[in-house]
């Protein structure tokens, strides 16, 4: 079953995430894919995340397809104008990559080449609409395509950034534009997330798209502190910081927190799956999936 069919059938979804290497070494992805094969339903391939140059997401997604893992290709608006976006989408479809996650992208200032020019020709809502339009057989120029691509369009949502209600409006826009699944930013504050999900259910959006909650296992308390300070738009409950600080083995505690979180998330109405996104710690995903009792496939 493909990722799309699984979402449509309503099973609990588990997604992983791979960050491509900063070189042309495709074997890194083949190596990492071993952690995911037969464990998760699909794997996100980041697109030059935090504006640092990496192996392209299309090529990485193709490598994943070759080894039998279903990719979700991330596509950002930072590096491409509408011509490149459509061309890349067509290229992806030709290679058999159908799941795309449409993002606006991190600003180039945060990357390793802050002097770059950001494009931002479209924003994420418009990117979703573009992919949806292509699904209907037309390019943005209204030209008809001979072969119609079949994208399964996803988007991101950040329930933790302010203002709270604007986040719901934005989710509404994304769903209206054609997003069929939503991956949220990592949950580190259950209260806000629960409140957000309540609103989402109230608006009926959980029926129009599958909400996959982000879970980020962390290795050390340092990582949490760093996120709290440096990464904009995240909220971290002090409870987790305290727990990690007092733990004798922070790695183990991090895994424990992630598993508890998954179990709590499963109980929230409207949550259709999870998206596990450890930073540079892919090997932990199978452990968490197994211990949380989520055998996929």
């Amino acid at each position: 079953m493909t990722f799309k069919e699984k979402i449509e059938s309503g099973t609990f979804i588990v997604c992983g995430e791979i960050g491509p290497p900063k070189s042309c070494d495709g074997d890194v992805i083949r190596e990492k894919s071993k952690y995911f094969k037969g464990v998760v339903d699909a794997v996100n391939i980041t697109d030059n995340q935090t504006a640092i140059v990496r192996l392209s997401s299309i090529a990485s997604a193709k490598i994943l397809l070759e080894v039998g893992v279903e990719p979700i290709m991330q596509m950002t608006c930072r590096d491409r104008n509408r011509i490149a976006i459509q061309s890349d989408l067509l290229g992806a479809a030709a290679l058999g990559i159908h799941n795309v996650l449409c993002l606006t992208g991190d600003y180039q200032k945060f990357g390793d080449q802050p002097e770059a020019k950001g494009v931002f020709d479209l924003d994420s809502v418009q990117l979703i609409a573009t992919a949806a339009k292509m699904n209907s057989g037309l390019l943005l120029s209204e030209q008809e395509m001979k072969k119609v691509p079949d994208f399964f369009i996803g988007a991101a949502a950040n329930p933790f950034a302010e203002p709270f209600e604007m986040r719901l409006i934005r989710l509404h826009k994304k769903v209206k534009a054609g997003a069929r699944f939503i991956q949220t930013q990592p949950v580190f504050d259950m209260d806000i997330f629960t409140r957000w999900m309540e609103k989402v259910v109230e608006m009926g959006l959980h029926e129009k798209c599958a909400i996959l909650a982000g879970v980020m296992p962390v290795k050390s308390v340092k990582a949490l502190h760093h996120m709290k300070k440096e990464v904009p738009g995240v909220k971290i409950n002090d409870e987790y910081i305290n727990r990690l600080e007092n733990a004798s083995d922070p790695k183990e505690e991090g895994v424990k927190i992630a598993i508890e979180m998954i179990q709590a998330l499963q109980k929230i109405k409207g949550v259709r799956g999870i998206h596990i996104m450890p930073v540079m710690w892919e090997s932990i995903t199978p452990v968490i999936v197994k211990e949380a009792g989520l055998g996929a496939i």
Binding site: T104, D106, Y107, K109, G118, F120, D123, S124, V125, Q126, A156, A157, N158, A161, E162, P163, M166, I169, R170, K173, Q185, P232, G233, K235
Partner: peptide, 23 residues
Amino acid sequence: CPKRMRNGPCGGTGAGGSCEVYP
């Protein structure tokens, strides 16, 4: 907006509403 968003804020709006690019 530095990203010229036309359809709502990006995911980086910080606490108190600071912009992610120019805090």
